[in-house]
Design a protein around this nucleic acid. Sequence first.
DNA 1: ATGAAAGCGCTAACAA
DNA 2: TTGTTAGCGCTTTCAT
Lengths: 385, 385
Amino acid sequence: MIATENLPRQAGTTLTLEEIARLADVSRSTVSRVINDDPNVRPATRERIWQIIKAHDYYPNPAARALAERRSRVIGLVIPQALNAIFADPYFPSLIQSCAAACDERGYYLMLSLVLRQSDDTFRWLIRARHMDGLIVASALTEDVFVTRLLDERFPFVLIGRRSERPDIPTIDADNEHGAYLAAQHLVQLGYTRIATITGPLNMVAALDRRDGFLCGLQAMGIETPAAYIQEGDWSEWSARQGMERLLQATPRPEAVFVASDNMALGALKAIQAAGLRTPEDIAVVGFDDIPAAATTDPPLTTVHQPIEQLGHLAAATLIDLLEMAPASADGAHAQHIVLPTELIVRMSCGQALRPSATQRAAARNLSDEGGVKYRSLISAALTG
Amino acid sequence: MIATENLPRQAGTTLTLEEIARLADVSRSTVSRVINDDPNVRPATRERIWQIIKAHDYYPNPAARALAERRSRVIGLVIPQALNAIFADPYFPSLIQSCAAACDERGYYLMLSLVLRQSDDTFRWLIRARHMDGLIVASALTEDVFVTRLLDERFPFVLIGRRSERPDIPTIDADNEHGAYLAAQHLVQLGYTRIATITGPLNMVAALDRRDGFLCGLQAMGIETPAAYIQEGDWSEWSARQGMERLLQATPRPEAVFVASDNMALGALKAIQAAGLRTPEDIAVVGFDDIPAAATTDPPLTTVHQPIEQLGHLAAATLIDLLEMAPASADGAHAQHIVLPTELIVRMSCGQALRPSATQRAAARNLSDEGGVKYRSLISAALTG
DNA sequence: ATGAAAGCGCTAACAA
DNA sequence: TTGTTAGCGCTTTCAT
């Protein structure tokens, strides 16, 4: 033991618990306890064992662990959309990043599950094989067989986005409806009356919520919206560009437009520019998301901020809570529904900013830096689509 | 047995090999043989067991398998770049998609490894824990500690991109140098003489190869390139836009520019348009990659096609071959270096197309549809940077 | 062609 | 506080 204890670890070699135990002159169990932070280990022993573990760069075999513990500590992030779409919208990098970070904090690993083919095989791999302990499902459609099957199989998951007809599914969502409402209010207060919108794909809940919140806001302020003023996009820049081109041909031409995502707003701005018009002089634009690019468009984009990072963080944390809960209490029926606030960020794309919203915004940011804990218990009533 | 055999599988339930064996009235071993396609099973027995497996939607426990087999059948795809950068360039979705498909074919699973933090922890998780059997490393830098450590640990991996100074690393690469050479040739043949380039980040091998191949091509045709005609970008659209703005201010203004990626070419086109100039009348543009968007720009982009899908497919296949090889023969020293051909796709962004290249291209496509097998044995000599 | 038995490296009662 | 002992669900010799 004395001789081997200080040997540098060998490249390509993998030690076992057993060997660490031998080096430390204790039993497997004790080493296992140290690794799993079991309090029942004398501090001195614990310390000594840690030294040895570090010296040898020992890492417990994940397969063996998973087999014995009956869980893999891997959770999946499923984005049931075309890969192109995922990559096209800067919303997703933030989401992925934050989910991954949250998993990390809790000793889990995030696995991106490309649902390439909606085929049965993928599903079996994902669910039946129990390769992962749980799933975060992002951007679900209003009708999603995937979600249905997860429920059938009693597979643990949380949904990013809401699903009011299934109160037994835990969901994390931004307050899309209210955010869109704020956008409507803003435009009306600036004096616009001919107001249009480019929506997301209307088979997605978030797109519906944003549309409805917006129209509801207009209505509340006494503004009518003709059908020609509502164009459907698919979150892609290109689709919004085309939508905007159609809007520009409507008569009378709208004075302002709410675009349901910043990424799409980028396309809308281009269409406006390509038509030889200016923003906001000829047509005002308000977006949704507050992606980084929104601050640097020309003109800087007024938009609705949604806390993407928190969304991801909370989704992961909620799922892990669920997984680590006693199986009895994990049984649905009273799942959490978290709704995170959205807020209007006034920049330049809607005409003169009427309020000193910069300070407002800074204050809000400070609060949200607390990391989502404050929202943990924010159980929402189901919003009406 | 008769009673239970036709029971529908229970939701949330996971059968074991043992139980399947009991249902089939055979031993564990036999079921295991069926699952692993061992020929030593009487066809009738095999058939009967498959029936039962399917009827119960049985799936072997991956952790148990991994533990017994000492491999996980999971391989990682590492893209050592900022997540934003990955998502910004449509090159990556194709790459990921094709790697995943190739893994699928061989019964492996592709795990995207976000190297979020270059911290030691991630590395340990990735390498020491042996959570995966091997790694595909994409877009490596010219100097990359990551690669060095993989070598130190004797961890199996293949590199997408070349690395001439380390002939013991298996690499898959597109012929960047030759592709760029072709672009240079094309421009010169069209009669341009003031020719500039916007490069990728010069700490990346692919960026260097494209620059050098291009400059080499110009030189071969007797064209000089002043330093002001070489602008460095970072693969982002935005960086290229800025690069192009600088080029437009050079005197004399270049008549043509080779942009080292299509994604960047998009930015370059915008800068040209924003300056009130036209492509190709005022300035010709040739890109690299042949991403889908290249066909639909205004004007459609002349570019160098690289077979991204094949690149990914081959990378995965090569790695899996490596993993399944006898450990003895897997030892480096004579690793494969595959270089896939690139070709010029002439569209509209360089002025009149002089050749009927469409037919040429179609022919090449038919060949490449064979799925990479033909390249499997294409061992290249190292190219000179 | 099939079965029995011995692990793979860990966790988790249960003893001590 | 620590060690002993059974598994976890599979693969893989080795017999038969």
